[in-house]
């Protein structure tokens, strides 16, 4: 089979993520998806605070730096003003599901017609590896030194279950970057979410399981094995809602 695979033009250059970080793959998948759908020129990204903000260095589209947790609110405002543009937020789990949970859930609840990309690595990476809402039970972080306990912090938050209760949501999927097959599937999810958005169907979200080797204190390869094992066991991978929203 004849093929050429090269870095999309929409990638500006080297990224500044840590070695083995999943963000680098996600950013490339977004760039590929935008180019293949013909939306790289009209795309606008609402950028979160945290490691996500390093997307500024890598992604060559219009971007806005939002207050911590508020990227989905900013994205909603942009999309309402420019419904013809492809608008997405790029957020980590700390940003979107801890400080920004209200903005996240109400963007879905109000059926704001943008796409939310959540990169879930289960820690606050940029601040040095504190527990996030998605830290697994037993996982050690700088704020759960003996491992997260249900008694102290409850169970890890599953945003797809929360979104799944909202009937107007257009598209929901959870992907992962832990191997090539899942990376290719995740790209398909991102494209389907973008397509649902541009069809005016409503709110769409792709959550992506991603490693943080630095703060998990693991080698990159072992981090991927952890996702393949315990992380994806708690957070099942796959499409949750397809063909939903206003056109359903």
């Amino acid at each position: 089979m004849a093929m050429t695979k090269k870095i999309p033009d929409t990638i500006k250059g080297a990224n500044t993520f840590c070695p083995g970080c999943g963000h680098g793959v996600v950013v490339r998948l977004i760039a590929e998806a935008l180019e293949e759908l013909g939306h790289a020129d009209d795309a606008i990204c609402a950028v979160a605070v945290g490691c996500s903000c390093l997307v500024n260095v890598a992604l060559g589209i219009d971007k806005i730096g939002c207050p911590h947790g508020r990227a989905s609110a900013c994205a909603a405002g942009i999309k309402r003003v420019r419904p013809g543009n492809l608008v997405f937020s790029y957020q980590g789990d700390g940003d979107s599901l801890s400080i920004g949970l209200a903005e996240t859930v109400y963007s879905a609840q109000r059926n704001e017609k943008f796409t939310q990309i959540i990169v879930n690595n289960g820690v606050f990476g940029m601040t040095g590896g504190q527990a996030s809402p998605c830290t697994l039970i037993g996982q050690k972080t700088t704020t759960t030194v003996d491992g997260r306990s249900v008694n102290m912090s409850g169970v890890p938050l599953d945003i797809m279950k929360m979104f799944g209760q909202i009937e107007s949501v257009a598209y929901l999927a959870r992907g992962s970057v832990h191997d090539a097959q899942n990376i290719l599937n995740t790209k398909r999810y991102i494209k389907k979410a973008f397509e649902a958005q541009m069809a005016g169907a409503g709110f769409s979200c792709v959550e992506i399981l991603s490693p943080c080797p630095t703060n998990w204190h693991m080698e990159p390869v072992d981090s991927m094995e952890r996702i393949a094992g315990v992380v994806s066991a708690y957070y099942p991978i796959g499409e949750i809602v397809t063909g939903g929203g206003l056109n359903a």
């Binding site: 093929m3 090269k6 080297a14 083995g20 293949e36």
Partner: peptide
Amino acid sequence: GLCYTVCPDYVFTIEDQTGSEWTV
């Protein structure tokens, strides 16, 4: 192209020697 797919740092390019493009 599996290396291209999994690389977080955009290191790899796979050039088709027949000149046509294929994307995944």
